[in-house]
Design a protein around this nucleic acid. Structure first.
Length: 773
RNA sequence: GGGCUCGUAGUCUAGCUCGGUUAUGACGUCGCCUUUACAUGGCGAAGAUCCGGUGUUCAAAUCACCGCGGGCCCA
């Protein structure tokens, strides 16, 4: 009999043909029904080349979720989007073109960002498609499209009307030379020589001298407390006492805090608004009232008294002189200090409080905890990341950014009285270039307005993804049938941002949770377990890997190598070696393809045995799939297919399948069982390796796609799994003995079939050509 | 620096909830074998102080405590 499958190996190039066929047949097109399973797919961010191989692996697994749901009878809605707002593309564009965002015209800069995004996006879409993602590519969305930004603005306007947005000042990194706030990512650190001044503070009650060392004496006027380490015995009796600040004569408390280093300076540290990031954290933590000592012009403000108008460095020189003259200096040390500089101007950044918009979140924390409790997490351990975060939130969410490539905050301000004007929703507003949509200020009647220049934090856009894909406020019926969505799959490093902000925003806008389940994946590391980065040179480009090994190999690697929710290591060699299993599956199928597919036959004991093992496999796989844990089915199927089905059963049944020395009914039992097992394996494996299973399925069993099939059900056959080990031990014994005696496997040998395997005797004698006993 | 989280052969992993064989299986490595649908295969071997320490116990990979290391987030 000629095998239907002639090729000796699975050729990953076939994947392209299969992809085209799926597309032509519109196999994964979504039609709204009453049984929708909506995936809140993460829109990936195109931040540079190459795309992270760990991310490619995430998307492969998200597709397994979609396929599992589809094969469980659900009508799967699997949207595809790209997140395109935010800082990384700005930095990428600046670097690529050697330009500075604020030094060229805003519209021109936005255009350059858009082009950069288009290139990077094309690569990601290509990877997602070639991985076999069964998503809705035709309707893929971009978070920087007019449509999406309009949507983001609408949700902002809604929340503005609900009164949960307010203005407040908060400290920002400020580069006064360029006149702009800068992001943490734009700060560089340099060791710069400076003076550490040991100043004399006086205790209020006992008039005792306390020495405090600082590199920023000009901020004495903004000093609100002095901290000492709680374990520092020198100060233990002073905790809670008042100190007199030199020159200003203000009174401040001594507070215990672990961040004070006993060995640095005198061990006592003055906390001012704001000397450095640590001061910011302390002001927040200790709830101190901030003092604005440095203005937006980079000069000392009026609170600095006679130093007003000086630059901090000048003020420092002068204040050191004045302290010396007043005999308030103990000593001065020349030290080298790790100073944060603006990457652009190379001047030290100042931390300056500025007005920003905030979204209220502190009053929703209890509600968020409750929603968190209701959402099922896979794996459950990652729910803790959310819960811990909810415990530690201490300020509301600052949502405005002084950046360009983002959704514009839709506000204009009256030039006369500064009253903000927030327009009605329904348009995409760009206040930095558009005319204010109202004629007159409601408060003072003035007709001149200035548009807001700031944009939203990028999480303002992505946190409404489940609302956007379910057409909230756009299509009532669609929304009703798809929201709350079924599942949010995402990576664990953005639980505190994307997952949390989505929960917050969706609850505020709809009163409901956005999804019933959250599936949280670990992080892809290099083969040594270190984080991959372009600068370290250990980043792996997924494109050549997928081209060489094929999407199914990549997917099977991802499924069988990654334990749910844990970080995982990526190695090209390991991915490539996974291909062996697909070869095995191919060859098993090639062998079976030489036998006709038949509906029934007379089952022997060995057939019943493998069917009972198959039943076990089905329940293990379905258990794994129900938890979206693809490690379980992939490793179980590999183990079964290779070590039980191919290594034992096929060998046992082979002689009978050929019909030599058996009746036709007995022969048909073997052929029936062989195909029954293989077709079941293919269906079980289809969510993980959709290409090879599709090809084998259509070659052997059906014109129709395997992806329209359901996952197989168990048949509750009698459990014979205790025979498995006995059979494989006996077979190994015979093979070994033949090898030792240098016999061919076909040669006959005299070995008795043990009593325990009596029921398989006929198959075993035929299999090993045993001299009958 | 703080919080969280994880730690079983070179790598992935089972076992840990509820303590009790010689710690499971796979990848990789090494050796042997043209022999079956498959050398993209088969058979076999080596490889683990179960991160370290202390405690509880007749008995600890498993329970408790203290460290160390990786990762993530925040600073």
């Amino acid at each position: 009999m000629e095998p239907k499958i002639a090729e000796k190996a699975w050729d990953p190039k076939l994947e392209n043909t299969i992809l085209k066929k799926w597309e032509e047949e519109k196999l994964y097109d979504f039609q709204l029904s009453d049984n929708n399973y909506t995936i809140d797919t993460p829109p990936p961010y195109p931040s540079g080349r190459p795309w992270h191989i760990g991310a490619a692996s995430h998307y492969a697994q998200i597709d397994m979720i979609a396929r599992t749901a589809r094969m469980s009878g659900k009508n799967v809605y699997f949207p595809i989007g790209i997140d395109r707002n935010g800082l990384p593309v700005e930095l990428y564009t600046e670097k690529k073109h050697g330009i500075r965002m604020r030094e060229i015209e805003r519209g021109e800069f936005l255009e350059l960002c858009k082009n950069a995004l288009d290139d990077l996006e094309a690569e990601m879409i290509q990877i997602m498609k070639s991985l076999g993602l069964s998503g809705d590519f035709k309707n893929y969305y971009r978070t920087d499209s007019e449509d999406y930004r309009k949507f983001t603005q609408e949700t902002f306007i809604d929340l503005w009307k609900k009164g949960v947005i307010y203005l407040a000042t908060r400290p920002n990194n400020y580069d006064w030379v360029s006149g702009t706030t800068i992001a943490d990512a734009e700060i560089v650190y340099e060791e710069i020589p400076t003076k550490l001044v040991y100043m004399k503070f006086i205790t209020k009650e006992t008039k005792k001298e306390i020495i405090i060392a600082s590199t920023r004496p000009e901020l004495l006027c903004a000093c609100k407390t002095v901290i000492v380490n709680p374990n520092d015995e020198r100060y233990s009796d002073l905790i809670g006492k008042e100190l007199i600040v030199p020159l200003t004569n203000n009174e401040v408390k001594i507070t215990p805090h672990h961040s004070a280093k006993i060995e640095f300076g005198s061990g006592a540290v003055m906390v001012c608004s704001y000397g450095d990031q640590n001061d910011v954290a302390l002001f927040r933590e200790l709830q101190l009232g901030e003092v604005i000592a440095i203005g937006l012009d980079g000069r000392m403000t009026e609170v600095a008294g006679e130093y007003q108008g000086l630059k901090p460095k000048q003020a420092r020189t002068k204040i050191i002189e004045d302290l010396k003259n007043a005999n308030l200096v103990e000593k001065i040390e020349d030290i080298s200090h790790r100073t944060p500089l603006s990457e652009r101007s190379k001047t030290p950044i100042e931390i300056v409080p500025m007005e920003e918009y905030y979204l209220k979140q502190k009053d929703s924390l209890e509600k968020m905890k409750k929603l968190g409790e209701e959402i099922e997490f896979y794996p459950n351990m990652h729910k803790q990341i959310l819960m811990n975060w909810l415990e530690s939130i201490s300020i509301d969410w600052p949502i405005s950014r002084r950046r360009f490539y983002g959704t514009e905050i839709p506000i204009w301000y009256c030039n006369e009285c500064s009253e903000p004007f927030v327009p009605e929703s329904g348009e995409y507003y760009r206040p930095w270039k558009d005319k204010c949509p109202t004629e007159k200020c409601e408060k003072c009647g003035n007709t001149e307005f200035t548009g807001e220049e700031r944009t939203f934090d990028t999480w303002m856009d992505s946190s409404v993804s489940p609302l956007f894909v379910t057409k909230f406020n756009r299509d009532e019926e669609f929304f009703k049938k798809t929201y709350p969505t079924a599942i949010r799959p995402q990576a664990k490093d953005i639980v505190r941002t994307w997952l949390y902000y989505t929960l917050l925003r969706c609850e505020k806008l709809t009163g409901q949770k956005p999804w019933s389940e959250a599936w949280v994946m670990g992080y892809g590391l290099d083969e040594k377990g270190m984080k991959m980065s372009k600068s370290k040179g250990n980043a792996i480009d997924p494109i050549p890997v997928i081209e060489k090994s094929g999407a199914d190999t990549f997917r099977f690697w991802s499924a069988s190598e990654i334990n749910q929710g844990y970080d995982f290591r990526c190695s090209e060699q390991k991915i490539e070696s996974t291909r062996k299993f697909l070869s095995k599956l191919w060859n098993v199928s090639r062998f079976l393809s030489s036998f006709p597919v038949i509906k029934s036959g007379q089952l022997s004991e060995s057939d019943k045995w493998i069917l009972s093992e198959l039943d076990k496999l089905i329940s293990i796989c379905k258990e794994g799939y129900s938890k979206y844990n693809f490690f379980i089915p992939s490793t179980a199927i590999r183990e079964f297919t290779w070590n039980i089905f191919a290594a034992q059963y096929i060998e046992i049944a082979k002689a009978r399948a050929y019909g030599i020395g058996f009746t036709d009914e007995e022969r048909d039992g073997a052929i029936f069982t062989l195909h029954k097992v293989l077709s079941t394996i293919l269906k079980l494996l289809a969510p993980i390796t959709p290409f090879i299973t599709e090809h084998l399925w259509q070659t052997l069993y059906s014109q129709d796609s395997i992806h329209k099939e359901s996952l197989p059900d168990i048949e509750n056959v009698e459990d014979m799994s205790e025979m498995t080990q006995l059979l494989s031990e006996f077979n190994s014994k015979v093979w070994n003995e033949k090898k030792q005696k240098e016999l061919s496997l076909k040669d006959s040998i005299k070995i008795d079939v043990p009593e325990t395997l009596n029921q398989f005797k006929k198959d075993l004698i035929a299999m090993h050509n045993l001299e009958s006993n």
